[in-house]
Nucleic acid binder design. Sequence first.
DNA 1: CTAAATACGACTAAAAAAGACGTATTTAAA
DNA 2: TTTAAATACGTCTTTTTTAGTCGTATTTAG
Lengths: 164, 164
Amino acid sequence: MNKINRKVEYALIALKHMRAKAPGELTAAKEISTLYGCPFDVMSRVLQALGKRGLVRSEQGAHGGYQISRDLAKVSFYELNEMLLGPVAVAKCLHEEAGEPSCEMRGKCNIVSPVTTLNRKLIEFYRGLSLAELLDPRHASVQSRIPTNIAQAAADAAAVAEQR
Amino acid sequence: MNKINRKVEYALIALKHMRAKAPGELTAAKEISTLYGCPFDVMSRVLQALGKRGLVRSEQGAHGGYQISRDLAKVSFYELNEMLLGPVAVAKCLHEEAGEPSCEMRGKCNIVSPVTTLNRKLIEFYRGLSLAELLDPRHASVQSRIPTNIAQAAADAAAVAEQR
DNA sequence: CTAAATACGACTAAAAAAGACGTATTTAAA
DNA sequence: TTTAAATACGTCTTTTTTAGTCGTATTTAG
Ligand code: SF4
Ligand code: SF4
C-alpha cells in the first residue's frame, strides 16, 4: 500500500491542468472538478490551501480562478506535501506538536533512531523530486532509469538464487 | 504526515530486538510485547506474517519463539513493507486487484503517468534501503550524509533568495 | 497432563481521510 | 444596482482504513 493522500493527487491534477495553459490564464476550480470528475469542494479547498502557501495565485469574483505562480521545476514534491499535510513525519514521535497524542511507547522504544533515519531519507528523496519532473512526461522517460532497473533485476535474481 | 504503518514499526522493533541476540536464540512474542509495551496480539500477528514470508523462523510449543532467518543486509525496506502490506501502490489505480474498488476517475485522470513515475521511484528508494542499514546505528552515521545535507541547504537558500 | 508458546479466524473500536453543507465575500457584466 | 459566478472558510457527516481484541486450536518441553 503506502498510498499518497488524495489532496496531493488533486493538487497534481490541478497543477498538471493549469500547466498546459497560457501564462496568465486563469482556471476556475469548477472547470477542473467537472473535467476530471472530482468533488468541487475538495478541489476548491486544495487550491485555496495552495493559494495560501503561494504556489498558486487566486483571483476572486466572476471570471476569477487560479494560476500557477511559481516555477514548478523549483518546487519539490516535499514542499507540496508539506503545504497540504504539514511536515513529513513517518512516526508520531517525530514532530510532536502541542496537543497531539504522543506515542505511549516512547522511552521504551528501541527504534527511534531507525525511524528518524528513515524520516530523514524520505524527506531527502521527496526534496530531490521536483513537480516539473513529476508532471512532465519528457522528464519521466529520461533520467537513465533503465540501467538502474536492470541492476535491480540482477540483484533480485541473485538474492532469489541465494535463498535456495 | 506520511506515517508508516504501525505493523512495520512493530516489525522493526522485533527485528532490532532479535538482532541483538546470539544466533539460534529464540525470542517469544510476549517477551517483546511486554518489554516495549505494545499489544501482544498485534506483535504476534506481525511475527507470524514475517514467519510465513521467511524473514523469521518460528518454533512452536513451550520454549518456542522466533529468530531472524535471513541476512538483514540483504532484505530491503521494500520487502518488509510488501510482506506486511502487499505491493507498494501510491494510488489505487495501480495494482488493481480483483474486487478492489477501482478509482472512479480513471479514464479522465491526467496524472496516471506522474503517479506511476512516483510509484516506481518510491519503490526504487525503498529497495535501496536495507534493514541492516536502517537498524544498525553504525550505518546511520556513515553514508556521507552531511555533504548531501549541505548541498540541500545551499539549494534551499538559493531558492528562497530567488523568490524575493 | 499441563503450561507456555505459536497459529489463525472473526470481530470491535478508534482514528484518519474524504466528502458534503452552509454561508460570506468579491467582482465582472447585464 | 442587481445578478451571477467565482473564491474563501468553518463545521459537520460519512466512509474507509487502521489498530486492537477475543476466542479457540495446535504444538511441544517438562
Ligand atoms: S513506536 Fe517508537 S518510533 Fe514509533 S512512534 Fe512510538 S516511539 Fe516513535
Ligand atoms: S486519481 Fe488518477 S492517479 Fe489517482 S487513483 Fe484515480 S486514476 Fe489513479
